[in-house]
């Protein structure tokens, strides 16, 4: 997104401008409503939700739903709260993002600066993997993870997320490096610099912006994944699967306040990443991959 405001040539009258502001604000309310509902109701005792108004602020503020969601709510059959699953998600997402980003950067570097016949086909095939419906790989993946002894484990989930994340990281780095002057790389080669030396000394120092994009994208996708976690999580289910189990559990009273606190807990890491670095993400994404 261009940081500078563009001088739009359209002149708008007073009534039109008021209308524009009203529409923009109504949509802002529409986008904020679910978060408001989640936050407000996670701070209420359950009786205020079942007998009261969902849109109202709490009368008796309480952090009890948060404590329950974190450490004592019934997930499946165990009253563990979401804490162990939050840890599972972290243990899964950090290595997966690191591995995928490093491989993507190297792939992007090879596919732009060390090209060979057929590099375009390889990139095309990699790119297509970003968009496949994962249903097409579920059955063989279950079989293979079982054979490798990785079914239901964190390393298994890391493997799955790396395999299906490489397409995206390669896409980002490839498009970014394609814009980097190849003459500089040629000059370094003539000076006798090798593959890795050029990568670490020339490419890596300029890779900050696209690394932000790649890391945010992969972190969000992998943290938010549900299909793979539900299919291959086994004993190491990630946060999304645990949250769904908490909300869909059919036994006992529906503790809406605990559900909302759990939902915010599940959303927190990606929201924090988005709030801290979202601006760079959108800017980098628009510059790198979407032509407008």
């Amino acid at each position: 997104m261009a940081p500078a405001q563009q001088d739009t040539a359209v002149h708008t009258g007073r009534i039109a401008r008021t209308f524009i502001y009203v529409v923009l604000l109504v949509f802002a309310l529409f986008y904020l409503l679910p978060f408001f509902v989640m936050l407000v109701n996670s701070l209420k005792p359950l009786s205020e939700i079942t007998d009261g108004n969902m849109m109202a602020l709490p009368r008796a503020w309480t952090l009890e739903p948060w404590r329950q969601a974190w450490s004592s709510a019934q997930i499946g059959v165990q009253p563990t709260g979401l804490k162990p699953y939050f840890v599972n998600s972290l243990l899964m997402v950090v290595p997966a993002v690191a591995i995928t980003t490093v491989l993507g950067a190297l792939n992007g570097y090879v596919l732009t600066k060390w090209t060979f016949p057929g590099h375009r086909i390889i990139f095309g095939l990699l790119l297509f993997t970003c968009f496949i419906p994962f249903q097409i790989v579920l059955i063989p993946m279950a079989t293979v993870l079982g054979k490798l002894g990785l079914a239901g484990s964190i390393p298994g989930l890391i493997l799955v997320h790396c395999v299906y994340g490489i397409g995206f990281s390669t896409l980002y780095y490839r498009n970014y490096y394609a814009a980097f002057p190849t003459e500089l790389v040629r000059a370094a080669m003539i000076d006798g610099a090798g593959f890795f030396r050029i990568f670490f000394r020339i490419m890596l120092p300029v890779s900050g912006p696209i690394t932000v994009v790649s890391v945010i994208w992969l972190f969000t996708n992998i943290w938010n994944d549900f299909l793979f976690g539900a299919s291959f999580g086994g004993q190491s289910q990630p946060m999304t699967v645990a949250l769904n189990n908490l909300v869909q559990s059919s036994t006992g009273v529906k503790e809406y306040n605990v559900h909302f606190a759990g939902a915010i807990l599940a959303a927190l890491p990606t929201l924090v990443v988005y709030i801290v670095a979202g601006r760079y993400f959108v800017r980098g994404l628009m510059a790198g991959s979407v032509k407008g």
Binding site: F35, N224, F226, T240, N244
Partner: peptide, 10 residues
């Protein structure tokens, strides 16, 4: 930035 599971729950 949110998971569809969070969106769905809300």
């Amino acid at each position: 930035a949110l998971s569809f599971i969070v969106t769905g729950t809300a």
